[in-house]
Design a protein around this nucleic acid. Sequence first.
DNA 1: TTCATCACG
DNA 2: ACGTACGTGATGAAA
Length: 894
Amino acid sequence: MAAVADVKQDKLLLLDGNSLAFRAFFALHNSLDRFTNSEGLHTNALYTFSNMLETILAAEQPTHMLVAFDAGKTTFRTQMFDDYKGNRSKTPSELSEQLPYFGEYLDALGIAHYQLVDYEADDIIGTLAKEAQGQMPVTIITGDRDLTQLTTANTTVKVTVKGVNELETYTPAHVQEKLGITPKQIIDMKGLMGDTSDNYPGVTKVGEKTALKLVKEYGSIETLYQHVAEMKKSKLKENLENDHEQAVLSKKLATINTAAPLTISLADIKRQAENQEKLIAFYEAMDFKSKLAKLQISKSTTSADADAAQKINAQELVAADLPQILKSPQPQAFEIDILGDNYHLEMPIGFAIGAADHWYYSQDLSLLTTPEFKAWLANRDHEKYVFDSKKTEVLLTRLGAPIAGMTFDLLLVSYLLNTFDNSNDLGVLAHLHGYQAVQTDLEVYGKGTKRAVPMDPEVLGHHLACKAQAIYRLKTPLLTQLKDNDQDQLYDEIEAPLALVLAQMELNGITVDSQRLQTMRLDFEKRLNDIQALIYEDAGHEFNINSPKQLGTVLFDELKLPVIKKNKTGYSTSVEVLEQLQGDNPIIDRILTYRQISKLQSTYITGLLKVIHPDHKVHTRYLQTLTQTGRLSSVDPNLQNIPVRLPEGRKIRQAFVPSHPDWEIFSSDYSQVELRVLAHVSGDANMQAAFKNKIDIHANTAMKIFHLADPSEVTPDMRRQAKATNFGIVYGISDYGLARNIGISRTQAANFIAAYFEQYPDVERYVKDIVEVARQQGYVETIMHRRRYLPDIHAKNYNLRSFAERTAMNTPIQGSAADIIKVAMINMQQRLAEENLQAKMLLQVHDELIFEAPATEIPILEKLVPSVMDSAVKLDVPLVVDSAHGPTWYDAKG
DNA sequence: TTCATCACG
DNA sequence: ACGTACGTGATGAAA
């Protein structure tokens, strides 16, 4: 079985078992209850660990491998220091009950695991990594940053960052770049700063910042103490002197022992072959159905075996079957697939239909346009259960066989239940809901350049049939959950009807004047050439201005401009940085202009020209099940980020025109909808009064935070800063963030916020309460009961937790605003039909709706659209809508 | 594929 | 002592 090792370069992979098991456990801490086997054993850590391991093995392909575990609570470190790891809370019983099974699992995979009395996993890893130096490259994977001290030219340490999916790779260079010290010096740093999680003290009042400074200056703790007497008198010096012993002890504790008395060596940890039987037994014992299924699928080499595993009663649909199937009054599941994402361009590759346990599939699209199938599709009394009603609607409309009566959409329901699992792959979602009898599209069609329709029509047919069956079988359980969550109205009255409205908007598209774009393209091309020549002159040579790397070299190495900010690949050359360099050198202004034009040219001129259809229109796709807040997003092309703020870019909008002569573009937008939602949900009387009395909300805020007595004292700049503060509140403010955004000191920002909360006390109460709500129930809700789960609200990691807290504040606001405009869109479409108007709703840009209409209908829209929008929902404050119109989108902006 | 950058609300 | 605004998508460069 050593054959594998012979053909491949040797490579050692060392895993920190305890640390990864902890990570794995807490990654799915929230769904603890969903992961238990038939005997009540929790399996979440095992499951996540298994997923991690699969990813890691695929990526690393080691020839030698070991997973190291801690042996017990006492080690040589606890002998040195009683309280080592003394404040660690007890391992949760739900995790410790899983630990014994890790070994069993690794055995089945043919991977070595090891623990050693009196030593920690770190020491085992350190010792083996040392043994491997000069023999083979080593990769260490852990959740514990302390192991980065083992980094060498031969040893890479990868540390889990976000949850378990992302790894940060530490090489000596990366350590140097991040901390400014060598890997070996990490123990000196730890010695000085101590470690709260391992509970050793370090030197009083010395944290990471100070520790790093000292290590950079002196090199090591030992040298530092040789020179401590020479330091000038300070609190720091005093603390260093007092805590000398502690520092030395802490350094010892932080040092990984690379000479542990192991009873194994490299030769013992070659990877062995998987033991399929053991693996199956393990998956069965743990109830890992999806992993079992995958094993079966990967085992079966012929399609016949795969079909047998799927156990579905499916057959190819022939015309003669149609009357029999379509006459049934029972609801049918209907699934139609394309290979890619763009259902406006691609043709379907096949479809499936059926109910209960009779399934039919076909690649013959002409069946769909037979009179009987068309009649069945168009009849809303024949209920259809689908996955992605918008896609289905667009595809069938394009085929000339419009569909009605889609009463269940698995994709939409799944998204409403949990925005986090927002895959568009039916198989993935079905698995998440515990339904295994269907493969993912990725598995059947492949990905990237290998993506293709399966050669065997039966394989495709069965996959389609399995998908239809999954839709059918998941309907009842998911609708029950929806009802339990009090989200059935959100689905029935908002998302389901909205999908059809969006389908019409997408199908309609918006006309683009490509002549206009071509003219702009030539103009931009000339200007880019001119500026480019000047920039080359300034730099003294040619280079790629679009390359941040090359640009950084020119500005900071060659022209010696001051470095303002760095990022992980080198110098930052972002707008913020360049603006601070303005005046230093004429090249800066030229680069800023070049950047601006080149952005417009690539993304909005050539980018847009590429996606114009033969009907002279662009047909975006609105993603209805993507965002975490309930907003839509727009792709292919994105029509929600067409330039508007700068005059130059704004002209792009002149290319968006009506599809008929004598028509106009009409646009209406909500004024400050998010702040109004905040006034509503917080119940703040002052903020509500401002909106009810039509007071300029930003000026109102300015008066308070600048302590002014009269509105006339508010300067435009004060208003600008107040506006930023209002936004800050909506985003889940911090003084630092506000300070950075409007360029004031952090203390001043803190004062603004304090004054803000004084003026709007119930807003302060709201932000506090909503975070508490998130902690208590694990999710937050919008006014229409849209949910966002926030598992990180309990995270130990400050960053993750803070982020969750900010989103807890922001999501109900942004999400409720999204709810409101969605209701408005549904009502709007309805009213346009009722009033027999030719006007078409074309676009939604979060708080605005864009239409095209005959010029004669503009006066009607000017009344109708705002009235529909401002009455979409009833809030405690009025909703205000502004409108504008003109011959192009550019002109339809107030 | 990932990163940096920049367009929008 | 931490490291910070919320939500998106497209592009070109570089790996």
